[in-house]
Design a protein around this nucleic acid. Structure first.
Lengths: 208, 208, 208, 208
DNA sequence: GATGAATGAGCGTTCATTCAT
DNA sequence: GATGAATGAACGCTCATTCAT
């Protein structure tokens, strides 16, 4: 009986140690990406910034790509955390409200960690296999498409596939550009105005 | 007196040679960017593909960045060449027609060299301060803004700055995504449909 | 008094455990050497295959070299086990018989674990001072030398040192090459033929 | 007319520079192999010892293997240089003379650069595809086989394939061992004695 | 004793850039 | 001007070894 807890504690201790190392590495990667960009994020530097040896880095990640992937995953997780509630009842709501909520959610998503979001969006495509961000947009697309389907009678548009593409792409681009490139707009009032305007764009398009 | 013309001829000859070398280098850079991406575009390889020595490359360009910048410039020049006429009378035309023309021009612009455009858009931000592409959009923005100003009475929107941002960003994003990511849409009929739809989005937004 | 036997049992138990660990490590080393070669035999991998932690590996062996040395020792032990009887009465027998027996023993020795033998012979010299294999040949040399001494009158050769070198080296090289490189010869009949031929080589050399 | 020689000189100059670099690298590789063995022959170290940058190493050799291959080639070239004449008339000569010449040639071959030969023989097999050394032995085998064929009537052996294997393997092993492991034998007189003894071994085997 | 996370020197290799020719 | 051999810092990654738990 004496050894059980001991064993358990050891295991937890090492798990904590591992976890801390992994977290430090992902955090360091994110920081370097934001501060210096993808090309400066060398494995040695990441390890260095994480206060860990390169060896440890490779104990937990098969390579640089995996670290970036982890950063992306973490970022998306955080976005989800923030946005989830926002999108809950959306499917049951009238177009005006639903669209406004979607736009507001998009804005919120882009404000989670704007600098990181920008780097991920701009510099990561080259990694090739890392289509996590696109998959994310794919989800948005599907959600929106489903919603339009359910309201088809109220809508002015007839090709719902095309309409979804138009709306999702516009919302994404507008929030992305506003938040990431024109950060002077970042005042809450300005954000409100933007949200209104984007919602207006989409609603007029859908309902005339 | 005997040497002047000779010199001149030589000079011209050498100027032509220089020009040819520069062109070959820019062309080689573009080709490699399209075929293999930014990371594989090493200076040695560019010189090789251009049929020129690395030394010569550095005679004409201070570094890799400058070559990419030249490619961007050339690409924009080609786009301008293609689009210029399209936008000529636009300022004098009614909203419906003007917007349609602008959208059509945007589509045309993205069809000039889509693969190159994609690479430039996705992989180049890393080069740091190369905001040539943004400057390009800036011009579009200004043009559009000016147009809205001239038609302000007909419009439903009141913040023209904001409205310009909304319209230009949407048009750019939609054509970019359609042409570069969903190339299955590339049939002329589909392109027509897209143009119509984007124009509809903008016009409804502007005029209700 | 109550604890003595207990302690003893524990000690034995742990000795057994130690023995098992050591064996597992040596076995794992041998397996990896055979399957993947010296370069792939990293200490971490050996420990892994042995189902033991790296830490434990270093508890029992001062380093990688020591493990390989242990494998060599074990291999030689197994060869001895197999060959010992073969060489028992050899000293009392006439040249023809004795030589034939020696050659047969050499063949047998090389057939104990040919793949391991080959790896040890080819890849181990790099380890530096591991002359265990040579020491092994040294024993053969001494044995053979002693035998020739006892038969000196019957022999055609006069420098027995030289003759021993010639015979032992030839026997070793021929059996080694035959077994390890030309494994198509491995049929029992072929092996018999080889043994005959090598014996003939040596006997003619010694007795004309 | 003025530029031709200039051009030529330039080209020669650069060819000489290249040649010198390549030679320095091969030489450095050989030296390190001899002094410290295969494992210590890292590309950086080779370049260092050659007085050349790593970059230059990779300009001329695709990797470490290629350097070792070049060393092997050079070594074999030197052996050929030394041995060629020795084997010229051999096919037309009587067994005694021919065998003696072959053995003498083998000894000579092993004395070209014994330490290097040893390293190449012992540490290189792991590279896998580098069967240059074996191919070399293959040539010896073929030559010997052909010779035996032409003298078949005089010989006591009937399986010429097997006999060739026995002879070539023995000669190679004996000269190799004598020269590389027992270098105390290296006096010319001792070498003479060894040559005689090995020739005797082979001749008695072939002719009784 | 046993564990396995952590270490870091060192590996093979690339590539933007320079400079003697 | 043109050449291309040469450079070397920096990269991604491995692995024998140590040591806190």
């Amino acid at each position: 009986m004496a050894r059980r807890p001991l064993t358990k504690v050891r295991k937890i201790a090492s798990q904590q140690r591992s976890r801390a190392t992994v977290d430090a590495l992902v955090e360091a990667t994110a920081r370097i990406l934001v501060k210096d960009g993808f090309d400066k994020a060398s494995t040695n530097r990441i390890a260095d910034v994480a206060g860990v040896s390169v060896g440890s880095l490779y104990q937990y990640f098969p390579g640089k790509e995996a670290l970036v992937a982890a950063v992306i995953e973490r970022h998306q997780h955080e976005i989800m955390q923030t946005v989830r509630g926002e999108l809950a009842g959306v499917l049951d709501q009238p177009v005006e409200k639903a669209v406004r909520k979607l736009v507001a959610a998009a804005v919120k998503a882009h404000r989670v960690d704007p600098k990181l979001h920008r780097v991920l969006a701009e510099q990561i495509p080259r990694v090739g296999k890392l289509e996590k961000l696109e998959r994310f947009n794919g989800e948005n697309f599907t959600l929106f498409r489903t919603y339009l389907e359910s309201r088809r009678d109220e809508l002015l548009v007839d090709d719902l596939e095309l309409a979804s593409f138009v709306c999702v792409t516009s919302i994404e681009a507008l929030t992305h550009n506003a938040v990431l490139h024109h950060s002077r707009m970042l005042s809450d009032a300005a954000m409100e105005a933007l949200t209104d305007e984007v919602a207006r764009l989409v609603i007029r398009y859908l309902k005339g």
